[in-house]
Design a protein around this nucleic acid. Structure first.
Lengths: 201, 201
DNA sequence: AATGAAACTTTACATTGTCAAGATTGTAGA
DNA sequence: TCTACAATCTTGACAATGTAAAGTTTCATT
């Protein structure tokens, strides 16, 4: 099947190429033609697998969610305390944003038009949210978090983590704070606002 | 000066045209040439006022911050309780995101490259953040918020509000929640996580 | 082996960002 | 007041991009 004409796995190769371009040259360099060139095919080959550029971006964004999911799971693996797992999740979330800023941006900054629905994108998104819900459930069972609407609480925590990552990436946190504290410490403080713990313990 | 050749106030006219395009046709329709056409000038006229497209976008983003600032101030005007003012600020923040989604996105989604520094953009950003800091200070003086590092707390609250708006715009909040509660109620719950109040009071 | 579908290429075209060169107008200094 | 210069705007050009159309190569099914 790999006869130099039929690629065999072009769809995924294009997604990987796109992610690589994002990582190396950033968002503004992500063109269909560059992606095709990097994958070693002609500039219209992507149209056999994606309806248009938006569809490719949606696939790249879905892959971003997928990778994020894996990192979140991996970060939680070594933690057994429910609260520690939530904190580890948040740290991994922010770390992903810092490691792959442009992939993170394209995944979250609403460039994926929501009028069109891209099922894989929605699916991966739900999978990540489910991780947060799990964490909240565990903390509630634990007594670490007060009982209450689990979904609401999970949304709150996700929004908090996400907003922090977003502002951090956008360089919109006061520079004084960033020189004063390491990012992990800032995030820890931020989370403790929710988790009702003594700050900076 | 308005002799049909020299426009007189083209720079601001271009920013306004850009905002209008964002409002009517969305981000993907925002091209330099469309902006120029809408302002009634040739397609290279913008280069007399902006170095490149990024610079125009930065100016539009700065205008976004400015408008947001005004809305936040206006929303707080009728509230005299410190806590109520913070809640009103948050509601106005989210409302702005819902009213002008694409303007909000372009202001916040990191499309403004932070390597280049656009002074007005940074300036307007700081002005908005200062509003949050003011709110925190008032709440601390009030006793509504515990004492502590004001900057840290302001960052936390801003991140929370911002993350909520971002997820809401990205259609990433569970649909079940959105049908169950109005957005203002969701936001109120979200804030109360921070403000240590009884939820849904 | 034949045929149709899927994957890919070549060609073409409109849109876009940006540069270069020129035209028009306001303004500061002689 | 006149003149040169700087700022502003236009025209023309070019390369890069998204995408459609038509043709070519390969795969799979009968």
């Amino acid at each position: 099947m790999n006869t130099s004409y039929h690629h065999g796995d072009l769809k995924n190769a294009l997604i990987r190429a796109g992610i690589e371009i994002l990582s190396q040259d950033g968002m503004q360099a992500l063109s269909l033609r560059q992606v095709a060139k990097q994958a070693g095919v002609s500039h219209t080959a992507p149209y056999a697998h994606f309806a248009d550029k938006q569809a490719l971006i949606a696939a790249i964004a879905a892959a971003g969610y997928q990778k994020l999911y894996q990192q979140l799971v991996a970060a939680q693996e070594n933690q057994n305390d429910a609260l520690a797992r939530l904190v580890a999740l948040a740290q991994a979330y922010v770390q992903f944003a810092l490691d792959e800023p442009d992939h993170f941006k394209i995944t979250f900054s609403g460039i994926v038009e929501t009028e069109q629905n891209y099922p894989e994108y929605v699916e991966q998104s739900k999978q990540c949210f489910a991780l947060v819900v799990d964490g909240v459930v565990a903390c509630q069972a634990n007594g670490t978090l007060a009982a209450g609407d689990t979904q609401l609480m999970a949304v709150s925590i996700w929004a908090s983590i996400h907003g922090f990552a977003q502002l951090l990436l956008g360089n919109q946190l006061p520079g004084a704070l960033l020189t004063q504290y390491p990012v992990t410490e800032l995030l820890r403080f931020h989370l403790h606002q929710f988790l009702q713990m003594k700050a900076r313990s």
